[in-house]
Design a protein around this nucleic acid. Structure first.
Lengths: 152, 152
DNA sequence: AATACATTTACGAAGCGTCAAAGTTG
DNA sequence: ACAACTTTGACGCTTCGTAAATGTAT
């Protein structure tokens, strides 16, 4: 059964998800409360059980938050835009015209392109900052060596 | 008088500083309250007057906040570490031993090197994300063109 | 039965946005 | 005198951290 090898252990509790994603249980519950994560399945006792898809979603959120600095409200919208494509692939929904599907796609593309321009800018800014810090570090090292081994 | 050309108008009010740095007056006052900005000089009526040095400091804060995502408390410490060098250059303080100066320098270097490693990591992560988004955008464009000009 | 998790609820802190009432500048 | 800006509160919102009291898993 080759399909079993990829599964590992399909469902995790909130603590394990927290460890794997670097977030806290509190944060995961908060994201769920704010509609960034859909309510996961539960055990009889009420414990949350997360799927691998949930993990992927959490990591996408973290990426947008930490790397691009978006607000959770913005991230929610962006992920909603991306979901359009997912929905389209599995449940090719009835009562949805081609024009509507096209609109969703164009919106998703627009969002993605916006993220790309922000990324490019951020990379450029970081590279500038890196150069500045290198120079700064060089000056510090000079000072230190001039105090450590004074030129007589 | 060549020195006049570089001065422009040496003192600015909070509104102009806000515009030039992309922050708000509220944020500038908050940073002052939190000790990130030293209290600027004032007019007789109480209006704040900022110097070019103040501007530079504000932009350094913004850089650390937006690009590296540090907390204001951390930023405060980092800037304090950097100041050691500035103080050393102009007022070579009495009552401070060479060992103390050396400690300050080494600390400043340590902080700078820490920032550098974080920058490198962030640049790498952003480049990965950029590649992923490029692929994603490509898929969107495919879908769109397949719906826009259907193959037959 | 005990230990390690989990659940909800609630209060608190960081980092500002926003509005109000008053004073200052040009 | 007037518009445009600034001042200091003070309250509100976002994004969680941190208990506290209780229940569940093993």
């Amino acid at each position: 059964m080759p399909e079993d090898s990829a599964v590992e252990h399909a469902y995790m509790q909130i603590g394990e998800v927290a460890e794997r994603t670097g977030l806290t249980p509190r944060t995961l519950r908060y994201y769920e409360e704010k509609g960034l994560l859909s309510p996961p399945t539960r055990m009889e006792g009420g414990f949350r059980l997360y799927s691998d898809d949930d993990i992927a979603r959490v990591e996408r959120i973290k990426q947008l938050r930490d790397l691009l600095g978006f607000s959770l409200a913005d991230i929610k919208d962006m992920i909603a835009a991306e979901e359009v494509k997912q929905e389209l692939r599995r449940t090719y929904r009835q009562f949805e015209t081609d024009a509507e599907r096209l609109d969703g796609m164009r919106n998703a593309l627009r969002v993605t392109e916006h993220q790309l321009t922000l990324i490019e800018q951020k990379i450029a800014s970081l590279q500038e900052m890196r150069d500045g810090l290198h120079a700064r570090a060089g000056r510090y090292r000079e000072f230190i060596s001039s105090l450590t081994s004074p030129a007589e």
